[in-house]
Computed example of a mutant assay.
Amino acid sequence: MLKVGELAAAAGLTVRTLHHYDSIGLLRPSARSDAGYRLYDRDDVARLHRIQALRAFGMSLSDIGLYLDSPAGSPLLVVERQLAALDRQISEAAHMRRQLLRLHTELADGGQPDLSTWLSTLEQMMVYEKYFTQDELAQLPMYHDDGAKAQWKALVDEAAALMGTAAPDSPAAADLARRWLDAFESGTGGNRAMASRVNAMAAREPEAMHTQFGMSPELMGYVMAAIAELKYGVWSKYLAPDVIAQMRRHHAGRGKEWALLVEQAREAMQADPKAAGTRARELARAWLALFHDMVGTEPATVDAFRHASATEPVLRMGNGISEAMLEWLRQAMPKPATQ
């Protein structure tokens, strides 16, 4: 058995820290010496290992205590969680090594890479990696595929040129909007969850979108307006002019709320697949309120909206909303479905 000083030295902690763990019931010594000194056995050391591992994950001491007393806090599961975290770090380091090897090869061949371009690439990696794991980035063509990235650059340049000469409801802007949606679908691999996170990234990182991808807020607004006009043309086959007018007002005032709400719903779905919790109900109510602000509450209009969404593929493009998400929201708020 180890005395408190010996365990502290082995674990790289202070004696005061172990005393604190004892006082809050997080790590109590299994025995005391005749002189009253704390003594720790193998099981105590194993528990300390789990505490240290969970601290490294950013978990608070109070949460660690609850976690360790639950079935999920078994030594096997904590070690498995550590291994998964290390695997992610190894994958990220390997990805960075590949990037550096490309630079090394170019330099070794006598090339003179543009430093600003290289730094921009590293910054782009940092932005994407806030939202995606390395495994997910490997499945995201707009991130790793040079052809897809060149396609996006060409579209951004074309949009910048059109912005000063063509209105969002012009034929030229409609053509750009359709190609933009097609590129977004292929660039996210047709994965709605990926699309949701890319949209959230764009909404939350406007400065990065501007400095790294050339998408100023004005340019982003122009493209979004062109996409909206393209879709209004399709909606108009199903919805009355006054409803289209209401949708225009909604998108002008509250349209930006959708990207973050969709992403919040996606995250909540992962945490609560059965939509049984309070967060699911909150999101369902927020979704319903935003939807009603867009098209109103008239049952015939809601039915027409749903029919159009199911019939016209272009209306489902680019928003990151899956049928599974809509069903999850319906479960969270069991009342007549509105989408």
Rank of each mutant, 00 (worst) to 15 (best):
L76D: 13
T278K: 15
E92F: 12
Q124D: 12
H292C: 00
S196K: 01
D63N: 08
Q52C: 10
G277H: 10
Q139I: 01
L39V: 12
F132P: 04
V223R: 02
G12Q: 06
S30R: 07
D22W: 00
R179H: 11
H49G: 15
Y67G: 02
E207Y: 08
A166S: 14
D69L: 00
D169P: 06
M201Y: 11
A284E: 08
H104R: 14
K3F: 03
G147S: 04
D169F: 00
E80W: 03
P336R: 15
G214H: 05
A166Q: 13
L239Q: 02
N191V: 07
L290N: 13
S309K: 08
D182T: 14
Y128N: 05
V243C: 05
G320Y: 05
H20K: 01
F305W: 15
T165H: 13
E129P: 01
T338A: 14
G25C: 06
A85W: 10
F132Q: 04
G5Q: 05
W180E: 06
A304V: 10
L61V: 03
P217H: 07
G5E: 02
S186Q: 13
A10K: 05
M1Q: 02
G190A: 11
D63H: 09
P336N: 12
Y40P: 04
T17F: 00
S322N: 01
A240K: 14
T17V: 10
D22H: 10
A276Q: 14
Y21T: 01
Q82E: 15
E323A: 13
R28A: 11
L260T: 12
G73A: 05
A8R: 04
A332C: 04
L76F: 10
V302K: 01
T301R: 00
A276P: 02
S74A: 13
S322W: 05
G36Q: 11
A226S: 14
Y67Q: 06
Q151V: 09
T165Y: 08
D87S: 14
H307E: 13
P241M: 08
R204F: 11
A11W: 05
A226K: 01
T311Q: 10
S30D: 13
A275L: 06
L48Y: 08
Y67I: 00
D22G: 03
A177G: 08
D242L: 05
A202S: 11
L61C: 02
A72C: 05
D135P: 02
H250V: 07
F57P: 02
G189V: 00
P141H: 04
L26R: 07
Q270K: 10
S60G: 10
A310M: 11
L181S: 04
Q264K: 12
Q246N: 10
L103F: 04
S186A: 15
M224V: 11
A138D: 14
S170Q: 05
A172H: 11
V262I: 15
I227F: 01
F213I: 02
Q134P: 01
G214K: 09
A9V: 06
N319F: 07
L61M: 06
R254W: 15
E136K: 08
L61G: 01
A193N: 02
G320V: 09
V79R: 13
L7C: 08
A93K: 07
M317L: 14
R98D: 15
A245T: 15
A154N: 07
E106C: 10
